[in-house]
């Protein structure tokens, strides 16, 4: 990236992170691990260890994992769909796309900058979940040593490192939604339609993943490995399925960004 590209990227990040709708979504996202912590605290049950929700009363760090567990299937894809679906279609619907291209921003360059901003947004969302869970956990529950899902006890620092890996894995998982959204966004001038279509695709993937008769294709679905980060909270870490999940994510990202590039590169901008 040259300095000019960095400047454009900075401007794009400003568009994403200063937008009130997106900030409101981040606030809602941050509330979820907090609400989980309050609910667990208020219920007063001491659930047995060895599960994510059960671990919360043992160690607050599990509040962040519980956040990832409930948010990854639907709300997180929704947040990514909103920003990714808006990326090109939003500029097209406001007419600003024609002025960006007449600057000239460059079609491939614009697409690359938009995708970089989407990836940053994915990372920010995962970071908000992790931080909110971590902080809520520290406030309401013990911190200290924690028992992993496989039963082994590790230090809090070790747990935080594992949480960081989970955060990165979740980011990589939902970047697939971002890539799909970027592609869909090049197909329409209606940002809402792009958002809805992207979210629909992720739901279809999860529905297909829940039908046992479709077992043969499960491994190929983008959402199949999304919760595989639980393996990172075992000892020793089971890397095989996490690795497969990352490969599947990479495959989808390459496929859909290439489609977006092919589509956008030759598209007539008539909006």
């Amino acid at each position: 990236m040259s300095r000019a590209d960095l400047r454009f990227f900075g401007s794009e990040l400003g568009m994403v992170f200063r937008r009130r709708r997106n900030l409101a979504l981040l606030v809602i996202l941050a509330c979820v691990p907090l609400l989980i912590s309050i609910a667990v605290k208020a219920s007063g049950h001491d659930a047995p260890g060895g599960s994510i929700f059960g671990g919360i009363t043992d160690n607050g760090l599990f509040a962040a994992l519980a956040g990832f567990l409930v948010l990854t299937p639907l709300f997180l894809p929704l947040m990514i769909s909103v920003v990714a679906g808006d990326s090109i279609a939003g500029e097209a619907s406001s007419g600003t796309l024609r002025y960006l291209l007449a600057i000239p921003a460059g079609r491939s360059r614009l697409l690359a900058i938009k995708f970089a901003a989407i990836v940053t947004w994915c990372l920010a969302c995962a970071l908000v979940i992790a931080l909110s869970g971590l902080l809520a956990g520290l406030v309401f529950f013990p911190s200290g040593e924690l028992t992993l899902l496989s039963g082994r006890v590790v230090s809090y620092g070790d747990g935080v490192v594992r949480l960081l890996l989970v955060l990165l894995y979740v980011t990589a998982s939902v970047v697939t939604v971002g890539a799909i959204g970027l592609f869909v966004s090049t197909m329409t001038e209606a940002p809402i339609a792009a958002m809805a279509a992207t979210l629909t695709l992720t739901i279809v993937s999860q529905v297909a993943d829940a039908v046992p008769q479709l077992g043969r294709i499960h491994g190929w679905l983008p959402s199949h490995y999304w919760l595989q980060w639980v393996d990172l909270f075992r000892d020793p870490i089971i890397t095989s399925r996490v690795g497969t999940g990352l490969l599947v994510a990479l495959g989808y990202v390459l496929f859909f960004t290439a489609l977006a590039w092919a589509r956008f590169g030759g598209k007539d901008i008539t909006a």
Partner: peptide
């Protein structure tokens, strides 16, 4: 160029809109 009427981001100021366009220019 001015093509088919002006088009800018509604929630940005005039200055911010022009800075945005300038940032896109490598």
């Amino acid at each position: 160029a001015l093509v088919e009427g002006p088009a800018f981001h509604p929630y940005l100021s005039g200055t911010a809109n022009l800075l945005r366009l300038d940032a896109a220019d490598r």
